[in-house]
Nucleic acid binder design. Structure first.
Lengths: 134, 134
DNA sequence: GTTACTGCAAAGCTTTTGCATCCCT
DNA sequence: AGGGATGCAAAAGCTTTGCAGTAAC
C-alpha cells in the first residue's frame, strides 16, 4: 500500500488490483490478460481503466512496454535490465537475467548516443517441444 | 525480373513495384510507407495489395516482420542475421551487421531449443542529437 | 472541495477479409 | 483457360478518447 502510494497515483481499488496482479508477474501480459485477470476480482473493471492505468505506470517508469509480440503490446513490471526468450510457437516470454557485454561497432558509437540494449532469444519452449510438430 | 520470378509469385506490376522498392531498402518500412512510396509510381495501388504482397513475401521467407515498433509493424527485406539500432526519438531503425557471441544460461538451454537471437540497441541518432532537447 | 479516476460508448488506427473482376502464365 | 492477384469496401482487432458521474485525497 505504502509502496504503491509512493508512485504518486490515487489508489483506487481498480488500480490496486492491477498493481497487485502485476507485482512480481513474469507473464509479460497484454492489456487483455490484465483485464481478464483483474475482472475476476473486480467485475466492474473496464478496459479503459486498464489502458489508462498502464499509461500512468509507463509514465512513472513502473512498467515497460515490450515490443516483442507483433500481435499486441505486452507489458513487463520488471523494469531492471534483463533479456527475453520467446517461444515462437506459443509466444510465451521468459526472462533471462544475465548480462552480456555487447557493443555496437566503433563507427556507430561515434555518431549515436547508445543508451541500452535488449536481446530477444527465439526458441521452442519445453511444452511446445513435447507437443511435437518437429 | 528473373530473380523475382524465382520467388514463385505471379509478377504483376504492383508486386514488381513493391519488390523494387524493397530491394536493398534499409528503412525498415511499415505497410503505409510501402503503400505511399509505391503509389507514386502506381496510383491504382491499394492497401490490400500491399498487405497481401507482404504476406506472400513473409511466407516465402523474403521479408521479415520486425517487432521493434509498437505503433505499427515494420518490415525488413534483409533476411540475413543482423541486429538493429533504434533511435528512441524518431524511431529510425539502422542495421548493425556484426555478430556477437551470446548464449542463454546453460539451464535454459537444456529445456529450450534455441533457434536464434536478435539484439536491439537503443540510442539517439545524430539528427535527433543535433536537434537538441538534451 | 478539488482533482483525478472510472466506465461507457464512440472513435481511431492498423490489419484482415470477402468478393467480383482482372490479368499473368 | 485457369488460378492467382487486384481493389474496393466492410469488418475485425487493438488502443485511445470525450465526457458525465464518482471517489480519493
Amino acid at each position: 500500500m505504502e509502496k504503491y502510494r509512493r508512485i504518486g497515483l490515487k489508489l483506487t481499488p481498480q488500480r490496486l488490483a492491477v498493481l497487485q496482479y502485476l507485482e512480481g508477474n513474469t507473464d509479460h501480459p497484454s492489456a487483455e490478460m490484465i483485464y481478464n485477470e483483474v475482472k475476476k476480482k473486480y467485475p466492474m473493471m473496464s478496459f479503459a481503466t486498464v489502458y489508462k492505468t498502464i499509461e500512468a505506470l509507463k509514465k512513472n517508469g513502473h512498467l515497460l512496454e515490450l515490443t516483442i509480440d507483433s500481435e499486441r503490446r505486452r507489458y513487463d513490471p520488471e523494469t531492471g535490465q534483463h533479456h527475453h526468450l520467446i517461444c515462437i510457437r506459443c509466444k510465451r516470454i521468459s526472462d533471462i537475467h544475465k548480462s552480456f557485454s555487447i557493443d555496437v561497432p566503433a563507427e556507430t558509437q561515434e555518431s549515436f548516443d547508445i543508451i541500452g540494449n535488449h536481446i530477444e532469444f527465439y526458441g521452442i519452449c519445453p511444452k511446445c517441444k513435447q507437443k511435437g510438430g518437429n
